[in-house]
Amino acid sequence: MAKGNDSVVASSVQLRDVGKSFPAPDQPLTRRPVLETISVSLEAGELVSLVGPSGCGKSTLLRLVAGLDFPDSGELLVDEEPISGPSAERGLVFQDPNLFPWLTVRRNIEAGLAARGLLQQKRSEVKEFMRLVGLEAFADAYPHHLSGGMAQRVALARALINHPKVLLLDEPLGALDAFTRMRMQDEVLRLWQNRRTTMLLVTHDIDEAIYMSDRIIILTQRPGTIEQIIPIALDRPRDRSSSDFLLLRSEILELLHFAGNRSSQVTA
């Protein structure tokens, strides 16, 4: 788990023919497919974005990788081992930071260590992680005193303190205003570049996907299947206004429009 040199420890993730269905809300006896035949491999240390129309199963896919749900068919492997349930090795950050409101910032960040019974021996790390996300001054504040960006930083620190080998991000910046969002994108990138964990990022924002990822997976309308996987070969740090960036952006928009045209729903 958390060994001395975690910064180089990342896991590969493989999805083979993964399918998932849920009971339809109006007819509980019929199951409605949400994901079908998803096959993709993430290399260790890769940052991959998941983009697609609303309701195409992006979050479901993330929950499957987290181990919070199980697929109906196919298999999910992390470092060649099947996923058997949630684990501290696969951290998850939601759009809503979901900080525990009864704990201070410090205790929220400590929660990952406390949950695994490692708080006593690793307490010194807590301070480092608070500094890492720039929150030492708010150690004793309760979550409802924080702004959206700060709360999301606490959520990131809380997930990172376990040194996860895979970090799953479910629209983590979706609720932030444009400026905070761009700054947080850089912060997440910096964390990723320093730690080199494998990251799977669900996003609605195509600019964010192009700006951050090594590859973009585009899902189709429900039931979600992989429409296309687009490698992003731009050099980092990327320039949001370069012509290559804009070209990629319009290509992907086109693809998404095609993927979503059954309900004329464009996600941008």
Binding site: F129, R131, V133, G134, R190
Partner: peptide, 18 residues
């Protein structure tokens, strides 16, 4: 490792406030 990273952070102290 961490203390090296944390130096990067100093520049980006949160401008969003309590």
């Amino acid at each position: 490792k961490i203390s090296r990273q944390s130096q990067v952070t100093v520049g980006s102290v949160p401008s969003d406030h309590v």
